[in-house]
Design a protein around this nucleic acid. Sequence first.
DNA 1: TGAAATGTTGGGGCG
DNA 2: ACGCCCCAACATTTC
Length: 479
Amino acid sequence: MKNILWWIRRDFRLTDNEALFQAAARAEFVTPIFILDPNLIRSNHVGEKRLNFLYGGLTHLNDDLLELGSRLIVREGHPLDVFSELRSQVNFDAIFAEADFSPYAHQRDSRIHDQFPIEFFGGPTLRYPMAVNKSNGEPYTVFTPYSRAWKVQSFPSEGQLLPKPDRIKTPDDIESHPIPPISASLRQSVFVPGEAEAQRRLKAFIETDRAPIYGYRTQRDRMDLDGTSQLSPYFRFGMLSAKQAFAVVNTAISAVKMGEEYESANTWLNELIWREFYQSILYNFPHVRKMSFRENLRLIEWENNPTDFEAWCNGETGYPIIDAAMRQLSQTGWMHNRARMIVASFLVKDLLIDWRWGERWFMQHLVDGDPAANNGGWQWSAGTGTDAAPYFRIFNPILQAQKFDPLGEYVTRWLPELSGVPIQFLHKPWEMPLELQEAKHVVIGRDYPGPIIDHAFARQRTLERFRLAKDKFERGKGP
DNA sequence: TGAAATGTTGGGGCG
DNA sequence: ACGCCCCAACATTTC
């Protein structure tokens, strides 16, 4: 073939990229193209932090392509229109792309497939969402059996990873839209975009001396430490392939064989499989995007108090662990996973606000915001999802903070105004005697808000409300 | 990938 | 010495 369009969607990398590899092997010219699709970049499910990471990623990808003699073509518009227009300007024989099974992408791609010669390769996960099923052909809805079946199939080895092409020839007469600039306020993001940074982080997490992965089982819950890989934004845009991660972790696991290090590496492996699980859930049960997976919890009578929601969003709930986490999110576009569970439990089970409100807020602010993982996480926390936390499992924000931020360093990092508060009061500052509040310049109601809700009360209210929803459902389908 | 309520046990103080 | 109470500490049940 003469010219193949390599259509980049969420595979911002040159190594282990089957679509690119095949395009380079089969065609004389390869045209890397990224489309700024208004359905994605103007959606109310994305915010500037993820868009900036995306734009930065495009810049890095273009730099990497330049080194191979190629360059990135950027176009703006609906993909069907963009390809129609392109066809009138240049000759291309086929479009090659990494598969994407999220609902919008799937629908978009089948329309493209009706009108253009397009071939799909691989995907954002190692296993296709339809490739891990029960013996009766039905998809799994519980994680543990899913992961067991997932692990039975073959693991990739590092030798099976595809190299990047030596050289890519790209026609030089194709116009490109400029890569949108990054907002000045976000140039200092903690997440440097690009494939090189993704690889550096993967190696730092797994392949250095005393790498964090070997203490992951216990360290991952500590919000005050950097015990997690922080790779999620890179997975989100495919700056790292799932296959690369699985191959590397597989090597690490074989190297240790047993003990705490082995358990830890396996715990991280399981986290990668959770990611595959939720991709599969969204593919097989697309309605979870709109409603509870569990039918019996679709009639919860939410409070949905807008003032409470605003306090949660802005980190002004008066619970330091909640407020610290929400500020970490709005300042960095990322939140520690343990903190995600705590703030989700608080929104849903203390404030009784519809989990979909929280889901949308996360999508708007997370650099790693992914519809499948985010929806899965929220439904898990709300107790409405597949293999979810039972509805009566309600986090106590104070106990969680004491367990997983024992020194209060996470809280004071994001709430420096609380740095003078002694640790025994840090996670419940409203219990400070008034003299101490004055002395530490943390007067509740003046320097820091009082708690917007009493946890014990909220817990009882939620147990009642969820119970009611179940009862209503039972009666509704009655005899 | 909880927490609270309730139940049980056992050591020590004490009459 | 003995029974009784108290109450941690731990276990089990319940939400």
